[in-house]
Design a binder for these strands. Structure first.
Lengths: 191, 191
DNA sequence: CTGTAAATAGGACAAATGTCCCGAAATTTG
DNA sequence: CAAATTTCGGGACATTTGTCCTATTTACAG
C-alpha cells in the first residue's frame, strides 16, 4: 500500500551526481507530522521523496480527512499543481523522518522537456497513479470492507512501518470504530 | 459532471487540417451501448472524443460496475494503457452516438514528443483528471449522499442528456434503491 | 392496438456503519 | 510509585444502505 517509484528514485540519484544539473536540486528534511505541502497552499516547487514515508490526504469542508495514498521513495508530489498552475489539492504529511529532493516548478518543466528519462518517468508515474486511484475508488465502492480488509492486512504485514488506526481508517474511508469492529470480527490479532 | 476538454478538441480539429499529420488520424463512429474499449483488452490506439458522450467504468470481480466519469468532447482515453503498456483498466461505453479520433499508440507517443501543444494538452489533461478523481473519491467517502446529491442534481439540470438511474447510481457508487430513496426524501421531482 | 420487454418506484427486512459514551489500559508527570 | 491524563476498545443505539421482491409505468416491435 505504500507506493514507491524506484525508477525515479534511481534517476534522481543519477541527476544529483551530474554537475550541470545538481545545482537545480536541493534537499529538505522533515520530521514526522510535519507537512511538506498544505492543502490550498500555493507551491513553487515539486518534491521527490528520497527517503521516508508520507501520507497524501484531502481534508473536506466538514473537517474529515481522506487518505488517498501513502507515498514513499521515488514518489513525486506537487506535480499536478506545477502542471495546472493551481493551489495544492491535498496535504502531504511526513509519517516517518523524511528527506525530499526539491525542484522549482520552472526547473521541473525544463527537466521534463529536456531530460527524456525524467519526462518518461514522470509521465509513467502519473499514468500509474491515475490507474491506481481509479481502482481504489472502485474497490471502495463495490466491495464491503470485510472483503477489502484481509487484503489490506496482508499488505500491512510486509511493510516496515506500523500505521495508527486513525491513519488506516482514513485510508479506508471509515471510522475508527468500524475498523475496530471489523478487526475483531476477523479474529485478527496482528494489529 | 460530463468532462470535456475544449483545448484538446480544438487542437485535434487543427491537426486534422494539417496535411502531413492528418493521415495518422482516422475517425470511428459508435452507437449508444457500443464499447470503444473493453476492460482487460489489449489496445493499439488511443482515442479522443470528437463528439458524443461516454461512460468510463470499472467492473469488479463481483460483477458490479463503478462509473469513474462521463467523458465528452475532447477527452482522451486509452492513454494510460499506451503509456504503461498494459491492458485496459476500464471500459469505455458510448451513451450517445459517438465519433472519435483514432491515433495509434506509436503515433500518440510521437505526437506527444514532437507537437508541443499536443504534449502539454495531454499532460494537463492527465493532471486535471488525477485531481478530479482524487476529489471524487474523497467526497464519496467523507460526505453522506444526502449532502452530495443536491450538487449532482444541480449539475444534471445543466446537461443536455438525461442519464438512466442505473448510470447515476453507478456513478455515485450506490444501489438504484438507495438513489430512489434519496430522491424521494429530498422531495425532488425533476428526475 | 396489443403483447412483451425494459425501466422505475417503493415496501420490508437484513446488514453495515456512524455516533455517543464509558471503562480499561497505557503513558506521562510529580 | 501513585495520581493525573491521554489513548484505546468496545457496548448500545440510530442511521444509512443493500438485498430481495413486486407492482406499475414506459418503450417498442409486430
Amino acid at each position: 500500500m505504500i507506493k514507491t517509484n524506484l525508477e525515479l528514485r534511481n534517476l534522481m540519484e543519477e541527476l544529483t551526481r551530474n554537475d550541470s544539473i545538481k545545482s537545480a536540486i536541493t534537499l529538505r528534511d522533515l520530521q514526522p507530522k510535519q507537512r511538506l505541502i498544505a492543502q490550498d497552499q500555493a507551491l513553487q516547487s515539486v518534491y521527490i521523496i528520497k527517503s521516508g514515508v508520507t501520507k497524501c490526504l484531502i481534508t473536506e469542508n466538514n473537517e474529515k480527512d481522506y487518505i488517498l495514498d501513502f507515498l514513499g521513495e521515488g514518489e513525486l508530489v506537487g506535480e499536478v499543481e506545477a502542471i495546472r498552475h493551481t493551489k495544492a489539492t491535498c496535504t502531504i504529511e511526513a509519517i516517518t523522518p523524511l528527506t525530499v529532493y526539491v525542484i522549482s516548478n520552472t526547473q521541473f518543466h525544463h527537466f521534463f522537456r529536456t531530460i527524456p528519462a525524467f519526462g518518461s518517468a514522470v509521465l509513467e508515474l502519473m499514468a500509474t497513479r491515475l490507474a491506481r486511484i481509479s481502482e481504489k475508488a472502485a474497490r471502495q465502492q463495490l466491495y464491503t470492507l470485510s472483503e477489502i480488509l484481509p487484503q489490506l492486512l496482508a499488505t500491512l504485514e510486509s511493510q516496515q512501518i506500523t500505521f495508527t488506526k486513525q491513519d488506516l481508517s482514513e485510508y479506508l474511508g471509515i471510522s475508527v470504530r468500524s475498523l475496530n469492529r471489523l478487526l475483531k470480527e476477523d479474529g485478527n490479532t496482528t494489529l
